[in-house]
Design a protein around this nucleic acid. Structure first.
Lengths: 247, 247
DNA sequence: CAACAACGTGAGCAGTGCTCTTGCGAAGGC
DNA sequence: GCCTTCGCAAGAGCACTGCTCACGTTGTTG
C-alpha cells in the first residue's frame, strides 16, 4: 500500500505534485479565473493534452487546489490552537480567529477559491467536506477545552427554536461534543460570522470604512467569543501583543 | 438634459438595457464565469463585435451588472426597513436581515457576483461604492430610529481600541450618525457578520450542518441585534410569522 | 445638401478547454 | 529473454471565447 511500486508510480506522483504546484503559483498570482491548463503545461515544458493524464478536467485540478487550500487553512488554525494551549479561552479563541485571518490575507486568491463564489459546477465534491470542517473543529476545540477547565459560561440568548435544537443535537452527536446546546448554536453562528469579517477584509468591503483592521478584527472576535460563552479575563482585552505578534 | 434627443439616443438606451437584461438572464442561469458576450449577442440577434459599441469590455458589462445587483439588494433592504416602521427595533433589524437573505437566496449568482470572489481585475471601480453602501445604511437606520425612540441600549463590550475609535468617529461624521461609539463599532461588525451568515447559506457551507436555515438565521440575527444594542422585546422572539411570511 | 459621427457587419487574431489518433518505452507474464 | 499490454507524451484539430479592425450604412447636425 504505502510501498512505492516502481519508477512509474513515483514519476506520476512527482508530476502530479509539479502540476499542482505550478497551478497554485498561477492561482496565487492571477486568481482562479485566469488559471489556464495550457499555461500550466507550457510552464512545465509539456503539451497541454498530456496534462489530462493527471487531471481529467480543469475543474478537477481546481478541486485538488480547493482541498489543499482547506487543509492549509485548517493547519494554520490547528497550529494556533496548539500553540495557545493554557491561555484563557477568550484569548485562545482570538488566536485561532487571527490565524484564519492571517492565512486569508496572505493567500487571498486561495481564500477566494474556498470561501468566495463556488466556481466549479456550483456543487462541491464530497472530498472537500472533511478538510473544510477543520477550522470549525478548531473553534469547537476551544470551547471543549474551556468547558473542561470550567471556564465556559452559557450565552444568555433566548431559548433555541425547535428546528435549531434538533440541528444542534445532531451536531453534538456527530462531533461527540458534550457542550450546552446554546454554546453549539452560538459556535455555529460565530463560525460563519468569522468568515464574514475575514471575507469583508480580504475582498475589500472594508475599504474606506475600517482602517484599523487589526484592532477592529480583534475587538470583534472578542465579542464573538463572548457570544459563544467564552468568559474573557478582564484587562487582557486590548493587549494582544504577546499572543499575536504583528506579522 | 433629460429631453430625449432623437431616435438614435433612444435606441441606444433600449439596446443597452436589452444587453444588460440578457446578460442578467445568463448570469442568473449559469453564473458569472459562464457569461459570454458572444452568447448575449447571439441571443439578441446581433454580431458580437456590435456589442462593443455599448460596453468596452466584458468586465465593464459585469461592472454594470454588479451595480445593478447592489441596487437591487439595497432596495430590498430599504423596502423591509420602510415596511417595518413602528415595530420594535430588534424585530426591524431581523426584518432587514431577512430581506437581505431572501434576496440572496433568490439571486444566488448575482449575490456571488457582489459578495463572492471579486472577479474583474481584483479592484472594484469607484461607481460601486455608493450602491454597495445601501444595505449598511439600512441597518444603520434601524439603530438611528431606535435611538430616537429611546430604545437603544449600549452594548456592554470592552472599551474600544484607539484605532477603532478614530474609524468610528470618521464613520459617524460621514454618515451624520449621532450614535454611541460602541454601537457604530458593533454595527460595522454585525454588518459584515450578516454577510457571513448569508454567504455560508448561499454558498452551501451549511450543508449537512444547519438544516433549519430559517430558524437558525433568525435566531442568529436576534443575537446580532443584541450585539448592536437593540433591545429585544421578550416573547416575540420565535414568532416571526406575521413579520416575515414564508415566501 | 454635405460632412460627420454613430452604428452594424464580417473577417480575423490569439487564446482557451478538451478529444482523438499516433507512436514510444517501460512493466509484467510466458 | 521475448512479447504483449498498458501508461504516457505528442500533435492535430474542434468549438468556443474576448477583442480588434477595416468596411459600408444611416441618422444627426452644421
Amino acid at each position: 500500500m504505502s510501498v512505492i511500486r516502481g519508477a512509474r508510480q513515483r514519476a506520476r506522483i512527482e508530476v502530479t505534485a509539479a502540476i499542482k504546484d505550478e497551478a497554485r503559483r498561477q492561482l496565487a498570482a492571477e486568481g482562479a479565473a485566469r488559471l489556464s491548463l495550457r499555461a500550466v503545461a507550457r510552464e512545465l515544458g509539456m503539451v497541454s493534452s498530456a496534462l489530462y493524464r493527471y487531471f481529467p478536467s480543469r475543474d478537477d485540478l481546481l478541486t485538488a487546489l480547493i482541498i489543499d487550500a482547506y487543509n492549509a487553512l485548517g493547519e494554520a488554525a490547528e497550529a494556533a490552537l496548539a500553540e495557545s494551549k493554557g491561555v484563557p479561552p477568550a484569548d485562545r479563541w482570538r488566536a485561532v480567529c487571527q490565524a484564519v485571518r492571517r492565512w486569508a490575507l496572505a493567500h487571498p486568491h486561495e481564500y477566494a477559491l474556498i470561501y468566495g463564489s463556488p466556481v466549479p459546477g456550483y456543487t462541491a465534491p464530497r472530498d472537500t467536506a472533511a478538510p473544510a470542517a477543520r477550522v470549525g473543529r478548531a473553534l469547537l476545540a476551544v470551547a471543549l477545552d474551556a468547558q473542561e477547565d470550567g471556564e465556559l459560561g452559557e450565552p444568555a440568548d433566548g431559548p433555541l427554536p425547535p428546528g435549531v435544537r434538533t440541528d444542534v443535537e445532531r451536531i453534538a452527536a456527530e462531533l461527540a461534543a458534550d457542550l450546552p446546546q446554546p454554546v453549539i448554536a452560538g459556535l455555529t453562528a460565530a463560525w460563519s460570522q468569522l468568515f464574514g469579517l475575514v471575507g469583508f477584509e480580504v475582498f475589500g468591503h472594508f475599504n474606506n470604512v475600517v482602517e484599523a483592521r487589526d484592532e477592529f478584527f480583534d475587538h470583534s472576535c472578542a465579542a464573538l467569543a463572548h457570544q459563544v460563552g467564552l468568559s474573557s479575563a478582564h484587562g487582557t482585552h486590548g493587549a494582544h501583543g504577546r499572543l499575536l505578534p504583528r506579522e
